[in-house]
């Protein structure tokens, strides 16, 4: 295998996971929290694909593709919720709305 070993990819993935987790824990905007959740899921994907390479087993890649679909679905639902909430309180300042669940 050319380039760095699988372990290097895993460290990257771990850092990405921690970054995403931190994002969920410290940000107040639900939009950014959703983005941070995507980071966490992608970190999982990176680990899956790195391990798939290590074991030369395509199962991990299949898993990653499935995760991608799930991540997309979560985004759709999350965005739908945010839109519904913003609709619900058109008269309110959206800052207050985002603060609600931030």
């Amino acid at each position: 295998m050319l380039g760095p070993t699988v372990a290097a990819y895993l460290v990257l993935s771990a850092i990405l996971f921690a970054t995403g987790a931190a994002g969920v824990l410290i940000r107040r905007s639900p939009l950014i929290v959703l983005l941070a959740l995507e980071l966490m899921l992608n970190a999982g994907n990176l680990a899956l694909i790195a391990f798939a390479r290590q074991h030369a087993d395509s199962g991990g890649q299949v898993f990653a593709l499935a995760v991608m679909v799930v991540a997309a679905t979560e985004v759709v639902v999350g965005l739908g919720l945010i839109v519904a909430m913003s609709r619900k309180k058109v008269e309110l300042d959206v800052d207050a709305l985002t603060e609600l669940e931030g």
Binding site: S29, P30, T98, G102
Partner: peptide
């Protein structure tokens, strides 16, 4: 969606 929400999407950090 962010564009739809416009400037209101800005949230305090």
């Amino acid at each position: 969606v962010i564009a739809y929400l416009g400037g209101r999407a800005d949230a305090p950090w």
